[in-house]
Amino acid sequence: MNRREFSVSTAAALGGAGSLLAASAQAQGQPVEGTNYVRLAQPAPVSAPAGKVEVVEFFWYGCPHCFHFEPFLESWAAKLPAEVAFRRIPVAFRERPFGIHQQLYFTIEAMGLMASLHPRVFKALHEERQRLDTPEAIGEFVARHGVDRARFMDVFSSFAIQTKCRQARSLTDAYRIDGVPAIGVAGRFYTSISLNGTPARTLATTDHLIQLSRRPA
């Protein structure tokens, strides 16, 4: 997968005093703006209720980096405080196979099958080397796992799922996502494994951004 490449000259942009602050943050092990995360020039829309901090993971089922990140993300998300609203957004950089995987995720979510099917999709693609890139293949896949194929495919092709896909693409554009896995926070910040090096550091940076988001913009 292509990942976002940033050309950030932090020292020049910040000036002398800002450079000292960045150096101090690095020395203390704190995430550094322009190195570990990016502040969006134009805020992205959020859907979380007032008083909650929205955190969005952008992913693609076919991405090996997303597959390896998933267990770390699951463990982290299970411990989030009530004031953090976490959700996933499947990206669609092009129609095939991204678009069909986007529909697959939103159908799984809409039918309340996250616990049973979401991890199985990752496993099917990355461990079992199945191809889930057509409606027929997806129908066979869900049927093998005890899901009513006809009902699933009705939801899969529904207007509601198509609407969710359009909204997901709009949010992906708003965050300027061009690589996954990536995490958006409060419509104001962006971070990723490519900016942090490891899942643990990425999630630590996300925690830092959640705290920043509680302050006035």
Rank of each mutant, 00 (worst) to 15 (best):
A77E: 04
R3S: 07
D148V: 01
S24W: 15
H68C: 03
D173H: 06
Q26F: 10
E83F: 09
L132H: 07
P45Y: 15
Q30H: 14
P181K: 00
I183M: 06
R201G: 04
T10F: 09
P81M: 03
P64L: 03
F93L: 11
I210L: 02
W60M: 04
W76L: 00
S116P: 06
E140P: 09
R94C: 09
A48S: 14
P81R: 00
T163M: 07
R149K: 14
A23N: 14
H118F: 14
A85R: 15
G197S: 06
R166Q: 15
A174G: 14
P81F: 01
F189R: 01
H65W: 09
I161T: 08
A13I: 00
G29P: 09
V55A: 02
L20D: 10
A143M: 05
Q26Y: 09
H126T: 05
P45S: 12
M114F: 09
Q102K: 06
F98T: 13
K79E: 11
K123A: 08
A27K: 02
G197C: 07
G99C: 07
T172W: 00
P43H: 04
F59N: 01
V91M: 02
A115F: 09
V56D: 04
R166E: 12
L104E: 14
E127P: 03
E5H: 15
N196P: 02
L195S: 05
F156L: 12
N196K: 03
Y61L: 11
N36K: 04
S75E: 12
A23M: 12
V91D: 00
R166L: 13
A11E: 12
R169G: 07
I183Y: 05
G29C: 08
N2I: 14
Q211L: 04
R131F: 05
T134P: 07
S9V: 05
G187T: 01
Y105L: 02
R188M: 01
G16L: 12
L73V: 13
W76T: 00
K164V: 07
E127D: 02
E127T: 04
E128W: 13
F69I: 04
N36R: 03
F98C: 13
S116M: 12
Q211P: 01
A13E: 08
R120P: 07
A160T: 10
G34S: 01
G16F: 10
V46E: 15
Q26I: 03
T198E: 13
V55N: 03
P71C: 00
I183T: 06
Q103P: 07
L203M: 11
P31V: 01
V155G: 05
L104N: 14
T202E: 10
G139H: 08
A137Q: 13
S116Q: 15
K164Y: 06
Y190E: 14
A182Q: 10
L203A: 11
S7T: 11
K123S: 08
E70R: 13
H126M: 05
Q162R: 11
H68V: 01
K164P: 03
I183R: 04
K52V: 06
L40V: 01
M1C: 13
I108N: 01
E54W: 06
A85S: 14
F122W: 15
Y190A: 08
S157K: 12
R120A: 11
P49F: 13
R151E: 07
Q42S: 05
G51K: 04
Y37T: 00
M111A: 12
Q26P: 00
P119F: 12
T191S: 10
Y105T: 06
S192M: 11
S47Y: 02
